[in-house]
Design a protein around this nucleic acid. Structure first.
Lengths: 164, 164
DNA sequence: TTAAATTAAATTGTGCACAAGGTAATCGTG
DNA sequence: CACGATTACCTTGTGCACAATTTAATTTAA
């Protein structure tokens, strides 16, 4: 008996190597599903999900540098530059180089961009109800995920020096 | 006093419309950070993160249809078809149309693809230690995220009929 | 006061993710 | 059998994500 139940019983560690045991896949698939939930709501505003995140930052505080968006959203210039240009093309913001330091680009909302905040004001509640979670559940999960993300970032930062 | 503390005090619901209150952003940024953690480990194997997920499924059970990968990974054909072709080009698997039903494509590991499992066997532990979480924390978070994802999927399914 | 180093942002190339539309094979009904 | 519907997959186009490289402006230091 117990001759060859699974094809890989001979590989040490392979028992942990299944899709359903991976926290990373739960995270990845939940994130994709959440983006799909936002999609129809945001398309009413003409925004994609990452564009919505940029607008959230700008609605809080306007006239900031691209590097500030980079730090708050943990995205790099290769992602942000074309994304911001698309928002500019849609007339929601303007990009302007700083006269003091020509390397810096400031992003400022237009009236159209600012007024979009009202149309977006109902989105958090709509998402919360559609996600089928209590506000307390969502808050708890948010706290855990931020803690995980921050630990991952500090690990990534500390292992950045290896290529130096 | 309290004249205009914030620029948007006049918009109802706008107080919930900030980046740091969004569970979705915690989820999104944690997922991206997790993918960055995997990147150097997987590049040793010549895999991207989504390719790794496909391989996880195939290491468990081989010779399955593309639609099975679609259901297990919650990805659609437009994502999977080119991804699987890249894995085929790297010699890790072969795609073969079913003789019984020419619409179906079966995916089967090559020897090279199967042997890669040994090289991957240490990844779960390396990720767990790098994420700075106990196994119990990771397990708990995984359970919560799967539950969230499943609720989101059932909500998305039930609202699919609206376009009919 | 240049030359080297650093910084801020843009560009290029690869690989997802997914909507929309297309094609060929199969199934279901009459 | 015919033929409309369905299924399984593929293709195309848009928009991220990010590594690697580049450009231009600024800072620093010799």
């Amino acid at each position: 008996m117990s001759e060859h139940k699974f094809s890989d019983q001979s590989i040490p560690g392979a028992d942990l190597l299944t899709l359903d045991r991976q926290m990373c896949f739960a995270l990845y698939s939940a994130s994709l599903a959440m983006t799909k939930l936002y999609k129809p709501l945001l398309s009413e505003l003409g925004l994609t999900y990452p564009q919505y995140l940029v607008m959230l930052v700008l609605w809080e505080k306007d006239d900031i540098r691209v590097s500030t968006l980079k730090e708050r959203l943990f995205l790099d210039y290769g992602t942000l530059t074309p994304l911001i240009k698309r928002l500019e093309k849609h007339g929601l913001l303007v990009r302007q180089r700083s006269p003091e330091d020509e390397r810096q680009v400031f992003v400022r909302l237009t009236e159209k961009g600012r007024s979009l905040q009202q149309a977006a004001a109902g989105i958090p509640q709509r998402v919360a109800s559609a996600s089928g979670c209590s506000l307390a559940e969502l808050e708890g999960l948010k706290t855990e995920l931020c803690a995980l993300r921050n630990r991952l970032h500090s690990h990534l930062d500390s292992h950045l020096a290896e290529s130096a």
